[in-house]
Design a protein around this nucleic acid. Structure first.
Lengths: 243, 243
DNA sequence: AAGTGGTCTAGACCACTAT
DNA sequence: TAGTGGTCTAGACCACTTA
């Protein structure tokens, strides 16, 4: 067994056949008590090992039923360069979670160059594939832009893109900046995505600009093994020396 | 406390002040036994809560010492939309790892629409920050494009961008497609990046096109908590209805 | 020497699933 | 009804850091 912790050893005993394909996706693993008996460890150790595999995304726990090898995830590609800029979950089925008016927190205030505590609309929507949540989109927009009109995120036809909606309100969006990164999933998101908090997720922080003024910003949070981003960039301009 | 598990409640009690900035990075959290006493839960529960925060990347455990609020790692932003398209590790110090001629594997052959077994130049470079490797760039280019000229990846001035180099060879690159995702770090990369294999890493699969013909493709692999990608997109075109 | 985090044991109850 | 996963209790030892 060597000097490494027992739960890592047990986990490795299960991980190998899963990755080799000897254990087909969907097949059931030994229960934690059976695993403890067969590998001569305490049940706590087998629990730890199984939870580790769950956190790695290799195994799925179905309470009351057992642990199962996870089916190979289907990959969804989000095209980030079409002009619609709806909620950014385009190829997926969108479920609107509604719009609230909230005070900005520091991070969003900085992205929108707002004073701390200013009011914004916060709109959430979920991207679903086969009924399962795959991506979560959270958008923030200063209330002052559209308040009192029918172009607020709350009043507009659901599904209208930001470009169209703000355009109709006289705010022309001519520039988008997207910052892509990975961070651990945090709590309100985890519940909405039906994933474990702490799992790494792909995050796109998108900000729409009217000239130098940011007018809307959003986070697209997607499960790392279901989501990919597709950027199609044109280099049409003639290439001058020195950039 | 409500119906949610106690360890989630304890975790939330710590998470809030951390995210609000009330607990500065580097400050020490209560030990797991102290936490158990003050919150009237078993020590196992406080353990579970603290491990959760560690897995979320908010907290760092120093064995024998305590749990600490994690200092914010320095983040490097890779601008993906400037025209230079060097090795894609622009803001960093680049260390050239050299060029080999190899047979394409299936995956790269598909990206370059080559026949299996055709020869390509493979060029590797490392992006360094403070001497530590942060990102690894691996580029593949069909030999037929530049073989015999002084514009091959091996012969050209190191640091010359693909656009300039291939442009000088008469191959005009007018289009770039980037696919961004996350996958576990694999082996030759892990050693070069001095990271553990299996760690999730950010991957940019970039392909340069001459019209419909792919002429160069590359993988940019970067540590998840040091690397971010920055896409600046212009929406200059007039916005027509229905996309 | 005291405190700490990592690991481990040996139990337990609950809500749920499968039969 | 038996089995399962999620959670929880009440202890324990070790290697390590801190003072």
């Amino acid at each position: 067994m060597g000097g490494q912790p027992r739960y890592l050893w047990v986990a490795e005993m299960l991980r190998r056949p899963i990755l080799n394909g000897e254990l087909a996706p969907g097949s059931r693993l030994p229960s934690r008590s059976r695993l403890a008996r067969t590998h001569h460890v305490s049940e706590q150790v087998s629990r730890h090992a199984l939870r580790l595999l769950v956190s790695e995304g290799l195994v799925e726990a179905r309470p009351g039923s057992g642990y199962y090898v996870r089916p190979v995830p289907q990959i969804h590609r989000f095209s980030r360069t079409d002009r619609s800029s709806g909620s950014g979950v385009e190829p997926l089925h969108r479920e609107e979670l509604g719009t609230l008016t909230v005070k900005v927190n520091d991070l969003v205030a900085r992205r929108l160059t707002l004073r701390d505590g200013e009011m914004v609309y916060r709109t959430r929507s979920l991207g679903l594939a086969d009924g399962a949540p795959v991506a979560l989109h959270t958008a923030w927009e200063p209330m002052v832009l559209t308040q009192g009109t029918l172009r607020t995120p709350a009043d507009a036809e659901p599904g209208t893109g930001v470009l169209d909606r703000l355009g109709a309100a006289g705010v022309i969006i001519d520039r988008v900046v997207e910052e892509v990164g990975v961070r651990p999933l945090r709590e309100p998101e985890a519940t909405l995505l039906q994933l474990a908090p702490g799992l790494p997720v792909l995050v796109v922080e998108r900000t729409h600009f009217n000239g130098q003024r940011p007018v809307e910003t959003s986070d697209l949070v997607g499960s790392v093994d279901h989501c990919r981003l597709l950027y199609r960039l044109s280099l049409a301009r003639p290439q001058k020396k020195g950039r």
